[in-house]
Nucleic acid binder design. Structure first.
Length: 171
DNA sequence: TCAGTGATTAGG
DNA sequence: CTAATCACTGAG
């Protein structure tokens, strides 16, 4: 099987609208309890982009929770929602430009809360650097799947315009 | 359609 | 300190 190689910093420091579609088909790779890497091809993601995007948590300014989004791309933004589900995001863009991509699905697992449950992602992954971490990283699988686009899910509070932009990318 | 569940946030 | 909010899920 083609395992690919770890994706480096410059992939993540581009604009979120360039990174998000490029993530489709990449392997989210995480070391299991036995120490061996397990690969999960990304199938569904959403882009959240900067101060003006009313759906982006960073649009209300920098807080303790969102601070990692203001840093360099390649780090993980992980937070708890509805008291039960961890949301996994990959920060993108250069430092000072708050953006992130929500991981909504991988092959065989549909739904952001289910993905983190299956991969055992929790608070301890907040700020983890995919470029250097020994327990989670991203690999190029050497494929570029055809993908679809559509509006983002679960952001009714963001207003009609930001609710409608097609920043969800999925197979 | 709707309850569960608790961290995070703004405001007093 | 209080209270509202929430990038979800599964049951009915």
């Amino acid at each position: 099987m083609y395992q690919g190689k770890r994706i480096a910093r410059d992939f993540f420091t581009r604009d979120v609208l360039d990174v998000a579609p490029d993530l489709i088909g990449k392997n989210l790779t995480i070391t299991g309890n036995d120490g061996f890497p397990v690969r999960f091809p990304l199938t569904e993601v959403e882009a959240y982009r900067g101060h003006e995007d009313k759906a982006c948590h960073a649009s209300k300014g920098k807080t303790a929770r969102t601070s990692v989004m203001f840093g360099e791309g390649g780090h993980l933004y992980v937070y708890l929602i509805y008291g039960m589900y961890w949301m996994l995001n990959i920060v993108t863009g250069p430092e000072g430009n708050p953006q992130a991509v929500l991981i909504r699905g991988v092959t065989g697992i549909s739904g952001p809360g289910k993905v983190t449950k299956r991969l055992s992602i929790d608070r301890s992954y907040y700020g983890e650097d995919l470029v250097i971490s020994s327990r989670i990283w991203l690999e190029d699988a050497g494929i570029n799947p055809v993908y679809k686009t559509g509006p983002r899910i679960g952001i009714d509070y963001a207003g009609e315009y930001w609710k409608s932009v097609p920043w969800r990318f999925y197979i």
